[in-house]
């Protein structure tokens, strides 16, 4: 029938367009799962796409939220560098405290820091690092990056298969860094959330509001998670984990 032939033709064309739209990172199919089923199931491909550009920023222009975003990126970089790779970190200001990164799973011998004065230097260093191809991940702290610049980085990451992580910093109190268009595959907002009280005096594992603000070819979502552990892994916030497990527990009890 002509209509079904036309339908098949259109379906094939749609699939082709989708493949072109989503770029080559999807075809390579390299993903780093978070190891948290609830997050992985929401991500296209079942994990964090490697060989692509990702962005993270703080929920607000608060130092703590930006520190949380920094730690979120550190955790991913640490897991990418787990098998002996090296991470290049392009800094725009000197406040990164390496002992804290070591506690998030990124030991100092796997981290090379490049101090860059200007945004252009950060972009150039990131691109150079991506094109080199021998690194586990490239991280850049940046205030502002336009569509063209991020597109270049995304292409460089696709070509070499090295993951690019961009820590976007708030420049003013009002200007959300994620409002600018960007070629990043996923864009995240991280913010501090109150942690669960311990039964004794003290302080437990920190908690974050993790928001997947945008992902290419997928839905956005948000979670409350527990911050990175010594291997750079996240965990779902215990109370929401309790909620999903609650029926089973009730049965057992």
């Amino acid at each position: 029938m002509p209509s079904s032939a036309r339908e098949m033709h259109l379906t094939a064309l749609r699939a082709e367009v989708r493949a072109i739209e989503s770029g080559s990172w999807e075809k390579k199919g390299a993903f780093l799962p978070f190891g948290v089923a609830d997050i992985d199931s929401r991500l296209k491909g079942g994990g964090f796409a490697t060989g692509a550009l990702h962005e993270a920023t703080g929920v607000q222009a608060r130092l703590n939220d930006e520190a949380a975003a920094c730690l979120f990126i550190t955790g991913i970089a640490a897991r990418l560098a787990q098998n002996g790779g090296t991470v290049l970190w392009a800094l725009s200001r000197r406040e990164l405290f390496a002992p804290a990164l070591a506690q998030a799973g990124l030991p100092p011998d796997r981290l090379i820091q490049a101090e860059c004065g200007r945004n252009e230097d950060v972009l150039a260093v990131m691109e150079e690092g991506l094109r080199h191809g021998g690194l586990a991940a490239v991280v850049g702290e940046i205030g502002k990056a336009g569509m063209a610049a991020t597109r270049r980085l995304q292409l460089a990451a696709e070509e070499s298969g090295v993951t690019a992580l961009m820590l976007k910093r708030w420049r003013g109190r009002e200007e959300d860094p994620l409002t600018l268009p960007s070629a990043a595959v996923t864009r995240w907002r991280v913010g501090c959330a109150p942690s669960r009280p311990l039964p004794v005096a003290g302080i437990g594992r920190a908690c974050w509001n993790l928001e997947l603000a945008r992902q290419r070819g997928g839905e956005s979502h948000s979670w409350i998670v527990e911050s990175t552990d010594a291997q750079g892994r996240l965990a779902l916030f215990a109370s929401s984990a309790d909620r999903t497990l609650a029926p089973e527990r009730r049965l057992a009890g």
Partner: peptide, 24 residues
């Protein structure tokens, strides 16, 4: 890929004092 090649390129761009590792 040899890491020294990348370090040379970055050091030529930024100046060799801008590239570092942290040591305890």
């Amino acid at each position: 890929a040899d890491l020294a090649v990348l370090i040379d390129r970055l050091a030529t761009r930024l100046g060799s004092s801008c590239l570092s590792k942290s040591c305890a």
